[in-house]
Simulated assay, not measured.
Amino acid sequence: MTTDFQTARVALGVRLRELRTESGLTGKDLAEKLGWQRSKVSRVENGKQTPSVTDVHAWADGVGRPELAGELKGRLAALETKYRSWRRQLSAGYQARQERAITETSATRMIRGVEVTRIPGMFQTAEYARHGFAASAEFRRITTDIEGAVRTRIRRQEALYTPGKLFRFLVWEGALYARACPAGVHAAQLDRLVSLIGLDTVELGVVPFDAQLRRIPAHAFWIYDQRLVIVETINTEMWLDDEESIQLYERSWDWLAESAVSGRQAQRLITRARGFLGEI
């Protein structure tokens, strides 16, 4: 995890240790009382393991301070709000996550995004999205409602035609070539991108392979107005709403935008990638 996450987890562990010592219990005493391994108490107190909601409830009861369960749950929720494991998020399927995306999009006037290896979800065709969801489900070894997720993602795209909205996306040229679907599906996706150029609510920039960059983009991210940044990793989705993080990602977006081309130049790059697929 990140330094911020680990710092917060250590702080929670310090608080739990404080409650234990105030109660006069040793780590062994508390472990026996809760029916845990002694090592679990140690890992939690030292910030090496994230306790569950059930764990912090049990801890509060075990140290004789059940009234503090609310405080401990709040501290735990602060961690889970920013760092959400995909396995937990997708336990109810991809469609539920797409519904949350619709909610965030509805509450946002401007979304700025960077995609390095794929086409942004807001611009995806149904077939491109379907292959993406299927590959992700296989990788994560989860069973999910792919068709429901596709329908919901496409419904989210209705916001592209809402007056007053603005979607400013930067796509690394390599994403135009990275193909995780049949050539025909990828070709149709590139055609869809071209069709969006010139839409009043869309500003699409492509960062060419040969562009000089002030900073190489490390990963994809989306900025919702100036209130939220969402970053995806392999196992976690981070929702960052602190001012420092937002300003950092805004700077990253601005620096990358300096190297992007748009309009006819972007269209030429997309058309070149489309031609690479040959006759479909």
Score class of each variant (00 low, 15 high):
Ala260Glu: 01
Gly13Lys: 00
Met122Thr: 07
Leu68Thr: 12
Trp255Lys: 08
Val206Lys: 06
Ile230Trp: 02
Ala137Arg: 03
His131Lys: 00
Asp61Pro: 02
Arg97Asp: 11
Ala92Asp: 09
Ala273Gln: 02
Arg38Trp: 13
Leu269Thr: 04
Tyr94His: 15
Glu250Trp: 05
Arg87Pro: 06
Pro217Phe: 14
Glu279Ser: 15
Thr21Phe: 09
Ser52Phe: 08
Thr117Pro: 00
Ala92Asn: 07
Arg17Lys: 12
Ile280Met: 05
Tyr249Met: 02
Ala8His: 08
Tyr224Arg: 02
Ala137Leu: 01
Glu158Gln: 13
Glu243Val: 06
Asp145Met: 08
Arg274Gln: 12
Pro208His: 11
Arg15Lys: 13
Ala96Leu: 07
Ala129Thr: 00
Val229Trp: 07
Met1Ala: 12
Ser91Ala: 15
Ser245Gln: 05
Ala58Arg: 04
Glu250Cys: 12
Val63Tyr: 12
Ser23Arg: 01
Ala257Asp: 12
Thr125Ala: 09
Arg130Gln: 12
Val261His: 13
Leu277Trp: 08
Trp253His: 15
Asp241Gln: 09
Tyr249Cys: 10
Glu18Pro: 09
Gly62Met: 01
Arg227Tyr: 10
Thr233Trp: 01
Ala60Val: 00
Ala31Asn: 06
Phe169Tyr: 15
Ser252Asp: 09
Arg87Ser: 15
Val114Trp: 11
Ile142Cys: 11
Asp200Arg: 07
Arg151Lys: 14
Lys33Val: 07
Gln157Pro: 14
Arg38Asp: 14
Lys40Cys: 13
Leu166Cys: 09
Ala129Gly: 06
Asn235Pro: 04
Gln37Pro: 06
Glu243Phe: 09
Thr271Asp: 13
Ser245Ala: 14
Arg15Ser: 14
Trp86Thr: 05
Ser252Cys: 06
Thr143Met: 01
Val207Gln: 06
Ser91Trp: 00
Asp242Arg: 09
Ala60Arg: 01
